[in-house]
Every structure is written in C-alpha cells, then in structure tokens.
Amino acid sequence: MNSCSDSVNVLRYLDNALTGKELEIFGAHLQNCPTCRVRVEEERALSSVLHRSRPLYQAPEEVRSQVSEILKQHSAAGSAVGIYERPLTLLQPSLRNRWLRLPIRDVCVATVLAVGFCLILAPTVVRRVHAASYVETAVGVHRSYLEGSLAPEIQSDSPTLVSVWFAGKVPFDFRLPAARDNNPLYRLAGARLVSYRGQNAALVIYETQSKKISLLVASTKSATIAGGDEVRSGNLLFHYFSRDKFQVITWSNHGLAYALVSSVLVSGRESCLVCHQNLADRDAYRRRP
C-alpha cells in the first residue's frame, strides 16, 4: 500500500474506491510523499481532460436514422412491452410518489377497494386492453408497411403460394381462400411474418388500384377480439374501429384473430362494401337507417 509505484491505488483513491484502513494508510502516505501527490494531481488533470473531450465520437446522422428505423420496426412488429406496458411504466414514478405521501390506513382502504374493483372489472378491462393492443399493432404494422420499413417477404398474387409459404412458419394452420371473383377490386400482393406477443403472426398484403390493405392474422391464444362498433354477419361478429386515417375491422374465426387495416375513406362498416359490393353478403355491410 505504501509503495510509490502502485498506480492502481492512485486511481482507486481518485475513484473514491479506497475506504477505511486502506484510505487512512494511503492518506498518510500522500502527506509524506511529494511524488505521489504529484502523481495524484497528474491523474486528476488527465481525468479532467478526458471528461472535457466527451463524447469521444458521435454517431453520424445516417446511423441514428438506421437504428431508429430498426427500433421502429421492432415496435411495429408487435413488441408486447411497447404496446401494453409502456403506459403503465410511465405511470409508475408518479404513482410511487403519491403513495408515499398517504397515511398507511388510507393506503390500506384504497388497496382493498382497488382489489375489489379489479376483481369485478379485471376480466373485461384486460380483454379490452388486449383487443385494443391488437388493433394498435395492426395499425402500426400497416403504417410501417406503407412507409416501406416492413417489406413483404414473399411477393405473389397466388393465395396457394402464399399459404404454402406460411406453412410451418406460424403456430397455426393458415390458408388463404382462392379468389372468388374474376375481376376483383383488390389483389393479393404478398405477405410476411411479424411478431405479436412473442409469437409469429401472418401479415397479408392486398392492393386496390390506389390503396393498400393489410390483414394481420394471429392465434386467438395471443390476440383478443373485442370492442369497437359491432356488426354481426352470419356467424361472424365484426368490430369496426377508426384509428387516425385508417379503418380497422377485426373478427375471429376458427381460433384465428383477424385485423384488416385500410385507408378507405368511408365509415368502418362501409369499408367492407368496397370489396364486397358484388358479393352475396353485401347487404350485411350497408348502413342501416
């Protein structure tokens, strides 16, 4: 410890890492050793120079935008953390501070009441939150596709080819129906995998002459369908939502959850008519008086 050649101790001293007996001995040594005092000052001066030169490098704008794109894609592809829990995380600090100011008894009463409410409302609330998150995910994915950051992994207008491509890639049996109309208003353009709540989901892209439509398909084990403007058609219950400039329609069938997103400028219910106006089920989508 008393050795003047021990540079490590000088660094530990400057880092405030020396404590107790070690610090006492080193301090006593410093008082009697001008060489070590000079060394301490030199090290301190060097630290100061290094500190002033921060940051040593700054990432170029190009790298920043590429990383930002990677993060955006990841969020859009259904990071469960981002969609469900971010609002809760943001609330945490303020909630924590408020709890600290309340008397214990009030806290207990509030806790009991909150638990009671939760027991009554939790299933509905959780279901709504999950359903909303599926809608938000579908919109986020659609937006990323429109912006070009989620390109199709297969480009084909053949439902069979796309169905074969998905085989083994998604944790459910997924087959696209064959085209029923010889002159459809929309055509299949391609597909890709996305991740939703840790599981692979299917994103199918359709195109009209001027618009793009995306269909997100996930297992109902991970995706919940609920809320919105509900319309029953046959055995299916459709849920319509408007999000920004997008119309979203969700439904579930045979264990799969579907979310169709488009920017067709009509109400959610009427947006189905754009493609179904020549089909037998068109009346189901007309606005009722």
Partner: peptide
C-alpha cells in the same frame, strides 16, 4: 429496454 431509451446508448456504442 424501452426502445427510446435504448437509442440513448448510440453515441457510446458508436465510439
């Protein structure tokens, strides 16, 4: 691990 926070390390990582 929030995506926005992850991007805070970009200069350090680049350096």
């Amino acid at each position: 691990m929030q995506d926005t926070t992850l991007s805070c390390y970009i200069d350090g990582l680049f350096g």
